[in-house]
Design a protein around this nucleic acid. Structure first.
Lengths: 394, 394
DNA sequence: GGGCTTAAGAAAGGACCTTGCATAATTCGC
DNA sequence: GCGAATTATGCAAGGTCCTTTCTTAAGCCC
């Protein structure tokens, strides 16, 4: 997540206007819909003439748009909101078997969506497919390429910013931020950012109502990743490797030998712990769900290594909430209960676990959210131009 | 660490002045010493007349002070810096056996220090002693009580902000933020804040040159605590409990049974692991230092539970650095090597461990640092008054 | 002592925000 | 249906702040 907010080198009172312009736009984003000038003035604690002047500038530039008055006591107020065609963004998630692309406007409304099954490794062929999907999304939404001002693409592996270098586990394929950017960038009118899928899942969970400002988000399936959200922001770490828990060395409850956490808690390996490898993970969970105590015990032993790793994180950050997304999130409450039980056993008491409400689209939701953030950054930077515009004074 | 920065409800261009005043003061803090106006203008990217006007206001209020020009090419420039008696703060650390109080000016120079051995539990008797020490510090520094505008007191336990409730382990004593505040507050002219000792140790480490912006600070002795620094700020968590690793449930390498991490890695218990309880911890470390491999092995096994807890934290936050302070920090390089070895074994590779350079004063340094921060907050809020001052315009 | 370099100070001008007032457009009550 | 109440809009005046520009001041070097 890039946070430049270059704040432009406006001088003197022009800087004040710049600050206030950003304040107005940010407030408008918080509301989500058209607002009356008076209301906007109240929320920003600016005066009405000031807000009116700022809004007029933004309207002239085509970023804001008038909405017809609604009935009310007193003179009906003109309302202003984001212009329909102010800007759009795209989000994309491409895994080993499935690719999804969505286009959204800055209020996070989905304007178009494309989804495909495929079997390409992460690489140029897949990028070409994504480019095609992106073009179809543009057509579906009826947007010119230039209207899409930002996009975020999810990738597994460690994504280093700003270099764009991506460290993938062997076998997944091979790409990096530069190649992704040059493959998808030409289809739109802005920059493409790439971000780790677990971090994006965490970003998605930020938007769920009732979430605390700090939590841990587990992306758990065949691979294992985590996103750390601190004070409402996904924390990436100096090289983007925050949350890469998979590399932990832990004892395997099935064999007693040391192994990597990612492999030990791989979804498909959970039944091994119970000593019943013929049973699928779904089946194991279903039995536990049905009250079969041996299955529930096996499940608890299976998730224990991850709980042992997560417990110190919970205590160190005073976390109350851990979210779970990824393939294993299909398992439902039995898994949650087992995991919560083990967290408790390791000393992380009173931690709530909850499943992502977005199911398979969690990462995509995060990518779109990230892109919307980037779109707003673009809009703010664009608004700075209004301030700097010559001939604004009359 | 309280971060109110109420930003005052100045309106219109007055708000701009307010922002610029804070900018000037913050820049001045960054420099640390007297600066020329021209230099200040360059650093703030304001113009000279603006800076001159702001500085004049602050000088009139007595917060800044002229310093005589130094020789240079061209006309000698008047320099401005913090007024000697602009403001002072105190920091205090009181443990079960030792109490220290220091008074510092806003540039973090120590103006007075009092240190005592004692044997009071944490409670009113100790608070009375601290009050007396604080008075003596004031006398030593030649300051009026009103000149001390903020103070920070270290306490073990979980310190909840802003309620001031303190959850102490049994046996240490009994106090809370309110009682500490009302015992020490009357001696000075500002508010007393209370903060967890491990968090303050972390705050102290922030100031060490070469520290990364994110790291973990272990406060390790008879008790165990940790401070988490994220992006240069100590992270407290919603109830101030961040870093409370002691409550983790881990297997004890000495007995194989489960126990609390705080007890399992208690400094005095390390020799038990080696099966040689007659040896002191110092002795064990010394033998390891001298190359005695069985002792080194025992040390590694002893620190292993803590490393196992810290490793997931390192991975989740992409940490490269863990600092160690507290009683055990006296042990030196053998301990560091053992700890780093175990971190590596658990998958947290390339993590640097380093000892606090402040020895027993680490927590105190953090308390002073925290108080200096609070002092600057006070100064900024005070500077807001300059802006609001009536009759400033002539 | 003249010239160079850099700082200090004062005045003018522009941009911005606020205050205050007059006007406009509805709804509500009778 | 009409007036009062309510709320929004628009315009002009006024003040604060910052910048630009120019002039004066003070020390060093040759």
């Amino acid at each position: 997540m890039v946070r430049t907010t270059s704040q432009n080198q406006a001088r003197g009172t022009a800087r004040l206007r710049l600050i206030n312009t950003r304040l107005v736009l940010t407030t408008l984003r918080g509301v989500g819909g058209p607002v009356q000038l008076t209301e906007l003035a109240r929320m920003t604690s600016l005066t009405r003439p000031t807000v009116a002047q700022i809004v007029a500038g933004l309207e002239e530039r085509g970023r804001l748009q008038r909405y017809e008055p609604t009935a009310a006591a007193g003179r009906p107020a003109v309302r202003y909101g984001l212009a329909q065609d102010a800007a759009a963004v795209f989000g994309a998630d491409a895994g080993r078997h499935r690719a999804v692309v969505e286009i959204a406007s800055l209020d996070a409304t989905i304007r178009a969506r494309q989804e495909r099954r495929h079997s390409h490794p992460l690489g140029d062929t897949l990028l070409a497919l994504l480019g095609e999907m992106l073009r179809e999304c543009l057509a579906e939404a009826g947007l010119a390429p230039g209207a899409v001002v930002a996009g975020t693409m999810a990738s597994p592996g460690i994504v280093e910013q700003p270099s764009g270098r991506i460290t993938l586990r062997p076998g997944l394929g091979d790409w990096d931020g530069t190649r992704i950017g040059s493959a998808l960038g030409p289809h739109i009118g802005g920059a493409v950012t790439v971000e780790n899928d677990a971090n994006l899942a965490a970003r998605a969970m930020c938007a769920v109502s009732g979430m605390p400002r700090t939590f841990l988000s587990l992306q758990w399936g065949q691979r294992l990743g985590a996103g750390v959200v601190v004070d409402g922001q996904v924390y990436r770490g100096p090289s983007g490797a925050a949350g890469e828990l998979g590399a932990l060395v832990v004892p395997d409850p099935a064999t007693g030998e040391l192994g990597l956490l990612e492999e030990v808690v791989r979804a498909s390996r959970l039944p091994l712990v119970g000593g019943v490898p013929r049973v699928s993970t779904e089946e194991l969970v279903a039995r536990a769900e049905a009250g079969d105590e041996p299955s529930a015990g096996a499940l608890r032993r299976g998730v224990d290594p991850l709980a042992a790793a997560v417990a110190p994180i919970c205590l160190s950050l005073d976390l109350r909430t851990v979210t779970i997304s990824g393939a294993i999130a299909r398992s439902g409450p039995a898994l949650i209960r087992a995991f919560q039980d083990r967290l408790d056993a390791h000393g992380a008491v009173d931690v709530d676990c909850l499943l992502s409400p977005f199911h398979e689209d969690t990462v995509l939701r995060g990518a779109v959210g990230n892109a919307v953030d980037a779109g707003w950054e673009w809009l703010l930077a664009d608004a700075d131009q209004v301030v700097a515009a010559p001939g604004r004074a009359r």
